[in-house]
Amino acid sequence: MAVDAAAVRPGATPQPAEPLLRVAHVTKHFRAGVSGVVHAVEDVSFDIKPGETVGLVGESGSGKSTLGRVITQLVPATSGQVIFDGVDLTTLRGERLRQQRRHLQMIFQDPFASLDPRMTVGDIIAEPLVNFGLHDHKEKDRKVQELLRVVGLNPYFNNRYPHEFSGGQRQRIGVARALALNPKLIVCDEPISALDVSIQAQIINLLEDLQREFNLTYLFIAHDLSVVRHISDRVMVMYLGKIVEISPSEDLYESQEHPYTKALLSAIPVPDPKIESQRRLVELSGEIPSPLFPPSGCNFHTRCPIARVPGICADEDPQLQEKSPGRFAKCHFSDEVRTKV
């Protein structure tokens, strides 16, 4: 343990914990038609530390869900590494990959489509246990009832079917299923966007409580930056397959290092008429380009308010660089974001 080591050797700085997940230069291309290539995820690298919640936010088509699926190996990466708990998942196949997946679960967006309507709630939650041969019959039932209790559902409803539950309750079932194997990392892919406003907070609070209780690590994918910022320690902003900014959540609203982040934040409506009347929208020209033909250089240059076109922004793709401690941005002119955007 890093902390103990520091205690033994006075003066030594505690080493930051080893990342639980290290994504290194992951690229995912899909073939489209005869010769087309969809650049869904392009050279993405980041770490997630144990116990951390990292948010991944972006507009539709930014590649955030694809990235989540590459990490869980639901789709194979075109290139790059997904190192989970010291093991590169992209090199594993078959049984060895399956064994790793135990520790890596997913919660899906649509609580109606992600539960088999012909299975009872008990069977749905027990399925991961059965898959890994972990529990005998009696043990299994006990475990399912415990899991139901953990997510706030009546344990005696384990023989009911998904249609007897509301959207929010179904999402709780999805959470219980994800918890069944005692995973280390849970990828939450838009877990609340299909739910009613009054129910969303229940699920967010539940996820936060479970994290505290079970030392979970989350990758939280959503398009709603206010929700992502609330639940995450760090937020990653994705645009057209690339991560353009990584920032601690607390700092993100105060200042931004990438013009896209600033535009995104300026567009989020706040339930306060006074603030709304003073809103200054950072207008982005045009629409998000097709990932079939991503723009040259910095792929944001076609919409960027401070891009030098023609110039470096159209010619050269900037690297994701640490601009200040803990804050990374992928922009040639991030110094200007504060003043000129």
């Binding site: 475990k143 953990v150 009546n154 409803f157 009911r160 007897e164 479970l210």
Partner: peptide, 14 residues
């Protein structure tokens, strides 16, 4: 269908 979430419930999950 709903009860108070009880995170104490699962001993061996922790």
């Amino acid at each position: 269908r709903e009860i108070e979430p009880d995170t104490e419930a699962v001993g061996d999950l922790r």
